[in-house]
Design a protein around this nucleic acid. Structure first.
Lengths: 248, 248
DNA sequence: CGACGCGTTGAATGTTGTCAAACCGAGTGG
DNA sequence: CCACTCGGTTTGACAACATTCAACGCGTCG
């Protein structure tokens, strides 16, 4: 009876984007901010978090120039963040999957210097930053965890610099695919079959390549039987081969 | 008499690398961690900071694999941070000048994943991280300031990604030179004449270019009368021209 | 149906990397 | 004092990978 009840709770979950989920129930709690917290502390965190209706594809979470007042956690869907260089060229700075935090680059200023938009229908938790700061003083483990999250963001960016600065187009794309694959695995999704939420242009922009090159590399990977590609649907046929190309 | 005394205090400063300087007297206090703090708070910060003898050229401040226990502030000299990719290739992740904080990528883990070494004789303030965390709880403005510092590091890395991913060798080097120039200006040093503390190889590594390309671009800039280059001594002849090439 | 966005493919071009050689200054030792 | 080496830098010739420009295919939506 008990297991049945649990089952039903899991299976009749009506929609992955529903907004009446608190941190304690969220399927991403093991990856996200609550990770470092005790049960009662999660409740305190939960009280400051704001959850609105889901964002539709192409909808902005924030835009460069908006006043900064929160960081965000992805609950479902996928988010891309990007900045404009002074010459008006877009630079994609990241892709964020459920359980991941974005918007930390806004902390340094009073206004956002980059933008964030939903690549598909996405639910997002808004974490008002001044309240997070206050709570971090009450909960040292939250402070520590947030320092670590920001540090991890720095490490990720540095790895991206190395990837773009030192690796070929093949290696760059293989690394991105491996990244998405392993991040999917952590979310109990298939690491071998998934749908890319972003366009070829976004991928190229992120990796410092042109759309044409991205397209060619996908074709090459297919010829080499590393992948099966159908538009945005990806099937990894040779995980080892891809891993060998990627910078782990 | 009063001005004379002040003069003498400034001029007989025996050595820029001396280690018996507290934050309140440090010439970098307006750029560094104390920036956000009141006078008595600076004293509290000062008490947790450790200052050893200066590091010599090529000496490591920490190595990848060392236990992480502190972040660092440059007091004098210049520091380069770098990581090894799994293939054993060095990746330079940053150059740090007086008043700047480095080592924040270590916060995410118990051990450093990158290394830091002195490019020239350098004095460094060591800030034990657990004590900084404790103090951040007592001094909310310190917590805020440190969050902002980390955010700024993220922004810098993202800008580097954009630079390497989207710009030519000329633009990359021009941007680095402009960065050093403006950072020098903030330290009341000449923005038009300075000595690069790092080798051509370091520059190339950092910018995702080969040594040969870096060298060629320096030559090209000289032919175009943008720079006068004598080994590591740089004189900017056409600041506007350089700025135009750089991504501001 | 035609227009449009997105992705793919081809051919030509070019910037940067690779390989090789030479230079230069500093330091060393005969 | 000079010859020597050594690391860092510069320069040249060539090749390669990615970009650019162009065309085309495909699906969607008006």
């Amino acid at each position: 009876m008990e297991p049945l009840k649990t089952m039903s709770v899991v299976t009749d979950s009506p929609c992955p984007h529903r907004h009446n989920v608190n941190c304690g129930d969220c399927r991403m709690k093991a990856l996200c901010l609550p990770l470092a917290l005790e049960l009662d502390q999660v409740e305190q965190l939960d009280r400051i978090i704001q959850r609105g209706r889901p964002y539709q594809r192409e909808e902005h979470i924030y835009r460069a120039g908006d006043a900064f007042h929160a960081v965000y956690a992805v609950r479902s869907g996928a988010i891309k963040t990007f900045a404009m260089t002074d010459q008006g060229v877009e630079q994609v700075t990241g892709f964020y999957l459920p359980g991941e935090i974005f918007g930390m680059d806004g902390i340094a200023h009073t206004h956002h210097i980059s933008s964030a938009l939903a690549l598909e229908t996405s639910a997002v938790c808004e974490i008002p930053f001044t309240r997070l700061e206050d709570l971090s003083i009450a909960l040292p483990s939250l402070q520590r965890h947030f320092f670590q999250l920001m540090s991890r963001e720095i490490i990720n960016d540095q790895r991206l610099v190395a990837l773009i600065g030192k690796n070929s187009a093949d290696e760059r794309l293989a690394t991105l695919l491996m990244s998405i694959s392993t991040r999917n695995a952590k979310r109990n999704l298939s690491e071998l079959r998934f749908r890319l939420p972003m366009s070829r242009a976004d991928i190229g922009n992120y990796l410092g390549l042109t759309v044409e090159t991205v397209s060619r590399v996908f074709s090459r990977f297919q010829k080499q039987r590393l992948l099966k590609v159908d538009k945005k649907e990806i099937e990894i046929l040779d995980l080892g081969g891809l891993q060998e190309l990627a910078n782990v």
